[in-house]
Computed example of a mutant assay.
Amino acid sequence: MQETDVVSLKALTCLVMANYDDFEALGDIIDVKGKKSNPDTYAKIIHILPLEKDIKTLMDNLNS
């Protein structure tokens, strides 16, 4: 998946649904269970990861 692919939450949800078995296995590892284990939750996680990287880079630059 390329960075430009992580734009639309709706598109990410479709990708998660197509690979949901893998995300369910991931949910056991990262402790996402019960009602939280759904395509929307995993799409939101994928959606925020690039933002987290950008924030870390910004903070590193501010602290240097």
Rank of each mutant, 00 (worst) to 15 (best):
D60T: 13
L15S: 06
L62V: 11
P39A: 07
L49F: 04
A18R: 14
D40K: 12
A18F: 09
D40A: 12
G27D: 05
I45S: 00
D21S: 15
K36P: 00
N63G: 02
M1Q: 05
M59F: 12
G27T: 11
T13A: 01
K36W: 03
T41P: 00
N63F: 10
D40S: 09
N38F: 02
L12R: 00
I29P: 02
C14K: 14
A43Q: 01
N63W: 07
M59W: 12
N19P: 04
I30T: 06
T4I: 10
K10Q: 05
M1R: 06
T57P: 00
L15E: 06
K35Y: 07
Y20F: 15
L58Y: 14
D28E: 15
Y42V: 02
K53C: 03
I55T: 05
L51S: 08
M59L: 13
A18N: 12
S64I: 11
K36E: 04
D21F: 15
S64R: 12
S8E: 07
K44Q: 07
E24F: 09
I29H: 10
T4R: 09
C14Q: 13
E52W: 10
N61I: 13
T13I: 02
S37E: 06
L49R: 03
K33L: 09
N19A: 11
L58Q: 08
M17V: 13
C14S: 14
N61Y: 15
V6S: 00
A18W: 06
M1V: 08
V6K: 06
K10M: 02
A18P: 01
D5E: 11
M17E: 13
K56N: 02
L58W: 13
S64E: 10
E3G: 03
M17L: 14
L58E: 08
D21Y: 15
I46W: 02
P50I: 02
L26Q: 04
